[in-house]
Design a protein around this nucleic acid. Structure first.
Lengths: 305, 305
DNA sequence: TGTGCATCATGAACGAACCTCATGATCGTC
DNA sequence: GACGATCATGAGGTTCGTTCATGATGCACA
């Protein structure tokens, strides 16, 4: 088993490039003696003569040239790696894998990422909808780097950066009886078919804020992935839904459905706040801060419709 | 400047493969402690977190995976190199660069090499005609590995392995006056146009054996590269030549030219011996011995015509 | 053909780097 | 919440690489 090291590859290359031991030693900032010992060491390890010692400006033998070829393959790989790691060190590069607890957030996230990747080309971006895994613990395990969520859990090691406020609003066909009401409350959902995203009830605003506290159970709950499909079903009066206001605002011009504020305990409106959760240890990363800034800007646009 | 070493690459790969520090340590035959120190060292060097320490079966971080990718590129290169060097060690592989001092030797060398490369596929074969360089010193400088020559120089560090004997023979057009003589001697060349290979006189049999000792100078010396062209010129009576017997024997059936033995000091025939010169230090290499054996066999066929 | 210069080799000694041992800290799990 | 498994830490010893000083060997040029 031979024991070639990077140092040896650099040595081979240096000797070949400079055409001499002394000059190579100078290039590598070690003594000529060190190199002489070193190449003897390699030859012992490899069991092969790498140099032609007969001729005085030390020359590579056939085997030496073969080793040089390997060096010319390997050294650039390491050089590239070094450049990449430098990028990571100074915060120019990194990973931004996002988990969405908020299913509707695709709507505003994609334009944000589109802007983001222009400014941070060296950051590896990805989005995962956290339908099937626990986003917050994935964040702590460093499986993802940012979680979009409206449930700050007050965990150590995790920062919750507020992004924007929003109101979940009731959506129904304009022909639906509840369209007559100015404010929708928990009891109104009794007997209704509720259309939701396919996530656990504990992560749905409507259940968390209204139905569960009031112990109201809709007649049926139908789970649908895509926002566009939910709105389509609502418009054709196959059920009612509750969506973040900004989602509905984008398509409100349609007269097929109406939106109504939710009400609770005599109050009108159920304001929620969206957060970007990140690891405390990484809150200095410039691209994370920039992402959050971009997200807030995009949210402002959304609020305007 | 970071200081990654092969050892680190193996470590990264082992940790990833085994999925744990202790198991990796076992694989690499070092202690778990050593690995722990080592990975901390790499991280310091690279200035990058390579592992997720939060989760207990130690996992690679994004940067760690990047480093792993480099390792997966580099380690196979070294493994291949190792295999090749093993081949060199046990004599299965090597280099056989041949220098020809004997210009006509292409004729029998090519079939020899054709046989040779089937048996020794891992030996790198090349031929150089030594028109423009000193083959023997190239041999000593390890620029070539075998010299075909008929001038044993009794040098230390060089072995001269006899291949076969041959007679330089006189060749002339059948219409040439000298075709009438049974034996050709030095004086017969006076007034003739002599056609030779384009090498120095000191390496031409005819000058070395006959003309120079007898201080005879032909009327003209014309240098021609290709044996076929020499024979063509001789056949059309543009000059005479002296070639090894085997060269002429292959095409002797033509009646356009005749061959005559050379004579000197009353003796008929000027026998010469062809050698394969190799470095003494390499005379144990099996493929060299085999090459010489093949060359002798081929020579026997040539003598038979 | 010898002399001088350039180049490489060698051996001892110092120093840094690495590994091991023993033990402590932390995580995941039952 | 306790236990087992996994990783971290610190001190100490060994190995390995480098330097320094000097010797050997080509190569060029006269």
């Amino acid at each position: 088993m031979m024991h070639i090291e990077i140092r040896h590859l650099r040595t081979i290359k240096a000797i070949h490039d400079t055409g001499g031991l002394a000059r190579a030693a100078d290039l590598l900032n070690i003594t000529q003696s060190a190199l002489s010992h070193q190449i003897k060491g390699i030859e012992d390890q490899a069991g092969v003569e790498l140099f032609v010692r007969r001729a005085k400006p030390l020359r590579l033998s056939a085997s030496g040239l073969r080793l040089l070829a390997a060096a010319e393959q390997i050294l650039p790989i390491l050089a590239d790696l070094e450049v990449e790691f430098e990028g990571l060190q100074d915060g120019r590069a990194g990973r931004l894998h996002i988990a969405l607890e908020c299913h509707a957030c695709f709507e505003w996230l994609l334009p944000v990422l589109e802007q983001f990747r222009k400014v941070w080309p060296d950051v590896d971006v990805d989005i995962r909808s956290s339908l099937s895994f626990d986003a917050m613990s994935a964040l702590r395990r460093e499986e993802v780097d940012l979680v979009v969520s409206s449930d700050p859990e007050d965990q150590s090691e995790v920062d919750f950066n507020p992004l924007f406020d929003y109101d979940p609003v009731f959506v129904a066909s304009s022909h639906h009886p509840l369209a007559q009401k100015a404010v929708i409350e928990a009891q109104d959902f009794e007997g209704q078919t509720l259309i939701t995203y396919p996530v656990d009830r504990s992560r749905l605003d409507i259940f968390k804020m209204l139905l569960s506290p009031a112990r109201v159970e809709p007649a049926a709950v139908r789970q649908v992935e895509l926002t566009a499909v939910i709105l389509m079903l609502v418009a054709s009066n196959r059920g009612v839904s509750v969506l973040p206001d900004w989602v509905v605002r984008q398509v409100r011009q349609s007269s097929d459905y109406v939106t109504r504020p939710l009400g609770k305990d005599g109050q009108v409106g159920v304001t929620r706040r969206m957060f970007a959760a990140t690891r405390e240890s990484e809150n200095t990363r410039p691209y994370l801060a920039h992402f959050i800034r971009l997200a807030r800007q995009e949210a402002v646009k959304l609020q305007r419709g």
